[in-house]
Design a protein around this nucleic acid. Sequence first.
DNA 1: GTGGCTTTTCCGCATCATGGAATGTAGAGT
DNA 2: ACTCTACATTCCATGATGCGGAAAAGCCAC
Lengths: 256, 256
Amino acid sequence: MTTDIPRPTGVQSLARAFGVLESLAELGGEAGLSELAAATGLAPGTIHRLVRTLVDLGYLRQLPSRRYTLGPKLVGLGETAAHQFGRWAQPVLAELVAQIGETANLALLDGDQAVYVAQVPSPHSMRMFTEIGRRVPVHCTGVGKALLSALPAAESAAIVARTGLPAVTPTTITDPAAFAAEIAEAHVRGYVLDEGEQETGVRCVAAPVVGPGAGDNRAAVSVSGPTSRMDDATITRIAPLVVAAGRRLGALLATA
Amino acid sequence: MTTDIPRPTGVQSLARAFGVLESLAELGGEAGLSELAAATGLAPGTIHRLVRTLVDLGYLRQLPSRRYTLGPKLVGLGETAAHQFGRWAQPVLAELVAQIGETANLALLDGDQAVYVAQVPSPHSMRMFTEIGRRVPVHCTGVGKALLSALPAAESAAIVARTGLPAVTPTTITDPAAFAAEIAEAHVRGYVLDEGEQETGVRCVAAPVVGPGAGDNRAAVSVSGPTSRMDDATITRIAPLVVAAGRRLGALLATA
DNA sequence: GTGGCTTTTCCGCATCATGGAATGTAGAGT
DNA sequence: ACTCTACATTCCATGATGCGGAAAAGCCAC
């Protein structure tokens, strides 16, 4: 490269290696060397050396067909990372559960989906099955809609354009205009509801994690429970609590 | 470094960076710079540059306290990797389901727990709720015990010592001696049974993934279904099939 | 058998990462 | 409140290290 930005570079081989990993993920998790070269714009020789190193380390795996896939070690690291995320969020989520009595979740925006990274289950015996690490669509979940509501309108529109609005339950919002209105309203109101749009019988209040340092961090909190316990009065009562939790988590992330 | 092995190295900055990530994971997911320097044996300046790059890329996160934790991007990569794992295992699992008619799972050992990375559900309407990415204890699950049975005895004993043997159902094995015997028997027999030890009414046959390339890869297959359909005769019939699937998956991993 | 394709290896050049020492900062101890 | 220590961060000259073009080796299809 002749003219890149003067100084914002860190360790370049590292940035490139992770670029390869990300490209591989975008390419569906499996790709040949030349596909990676095309995707990253690097010379074949360079990519090969990078990739060989990653294979040696166990973060990439080479198939008999000589193509490459993501390796097992990444699963472990990712899991550890998800747990770690849970750790700092845990106190805030636990407080939510204590105040509200329903399961609280933290999710991150990853690509065009939301991924759950932390959870504190409700004390009730009738629990919710939100698994850590699970990925869900953004358009039919509380956390997903909360994540979108915190994004610039153009960006959230782009995501919706890519994923579409497939119906998951009878109450899933499938009309683009109605969905845009929902997001816009959530943006000004600060929280969003999920009326059984992902799973019938489950109501959910969600709010984005907002704050100075949350820019890169696209996260959202939610509280969800069965419709029987989540009546309108309850929702009205807990919405501010969820919003406050989002702010608190944002402050934790922000730091400084 | 003055005298390392002449040439078997790949890209060293990469190896070091991933070493940092692994050290961080081993240190409980959170560490200061000097702890990392001590753990990896590198100079503080070197680590700092590496770490700064990773922070810029989003794979690491710096806390207010100036300490470091694993970043959100790792969660996403790990998830993608786990899904990818499902892809190559899918054919083998699907064949198991075709032969047996019950849900087949693939799990990896991660730390002291087992994590499910792939699943093919049974055609029966009464299905099992094994979520991809879910973590389960090793002592009360088929896959967990199968994983242990493939480990050196010392290592599996160390895991059990750390996790203990908490009862999850009335049939969970809680006696250390009985558990050790169970693992030893599984080691020679090649497969292991789960008699509702994790969930009442669910029986399960599991076998480790074994083979030349499986060394680092700690994986196990399982087939599970309701007790009503999993009688003794069925178990006897399907156990060899599960074992064979474990071997086949091991061969796939080995490759070359 | 032959041709195009991708993957892999090689090698000289300059860049890029390196790590020790210097500076800045936070928190503990007195 | 002040100092002292320990840690995180920045700087810089050195040379080892990663870079990428081009050539070799394989693979597959025709």
